[in-house]
Amino acid sequence: MLQQLITAGLTIAVGITAAFGYFYGSNILLDLIFPSKAPGDRGTRNIRRAGVIRPWLFVGPAVLALTLYLVYPVVDSIWLSFHGRDGHEFVGLKNYIWFVGDARIRAAFLNNLLWLLVVPAASTFLGLVSAALTDRIFWGNLAKSLIFMPMAISFVGATVIWKFVYDYRAANQTQIGLLNAIVTWFGGAPEAWITVPFWNNFFLMVILVWIQTGFAMVILSAALRGIPEETIEAAVLDGANGLQIFFRIMVPQIWSTIAVVWTTITITVLKVFDIVYAMTNGQWDTDVLANQMYVWMFEGGGDYGRGATIALIIMLLVVPIMIWNIRNARREMEGR
């Protein structure tokens, strides 16, 4: 344990020193190669040259790291998706044809669609409602902290927590699952919730909604506070009631923020894997694409070709939303 801590500390120290040394050293080196105090024209020319090179020196490490950890894997995935199980024999479009025709993939795809419809909508809506309501109560900040807290829990951790909520014991035993405890208290029969087809999808989605509502609330709460107070007062004078003010004056003014929150959660949803993997591993018709990717890539000996194909398709689905999202966020920053 202590050994590990020391290693970790040392790694951090060495890493930071190296990074600092690189930026500081390369900067000095550049100034040495192109001295700005050189006589006459050469001085200004050197400044200009150094100015051209300097940005590349500084972003260089980041570009290298991105290439190694992002660009290379993408290219490799594309290459793998045209190859067989072990990644050697070229199979053309076979993996893609398999993707379109496979029944389990189709089921996972449909589940993904369901997630896409429900989770961003529910998280954004609940986030908006909690943002609006917590702004009005004196213990609003406490409420906000509580709602935000799940954001700090990892998806797997959250799933473990909810496993206890959905836990099932035979009818004659004490129910330790919260949901079954409530159901039996009201006189119902306990149920193994995560095995109920179709509805179990929603039980899984609740976990992500639980996590993402905090995120939506924080962003939307800031947006709501940015609305000029006078427009609300003007609406009060115009005779609008609370709901009318909320939906016709406040929500339209933060519409672009809502869109950013919505799409950001949409991207998270497309990548959701941990929750399904930890809760059901795709059993009982709860599979999603990301889980399929993991299953094909690493289980049963691994099929690199099919795993890479699924990964690429998930990426293709995310990219347009990502672009739209970044554009929107940028426009927001520029104040439209």
Partner: peptide, 18 residues
């Protein structure tokens, strides 16, 4: 306010931007 028979013009105009 809406039933007092008054209307108000604000310093910041307070127009509904959307």
């Amino acid at each position: 306010p809406a039933q007092r028979g008054i209307a108000m013009v604000f310093q910041s105009y307070a127009l509904y931007p959307h």
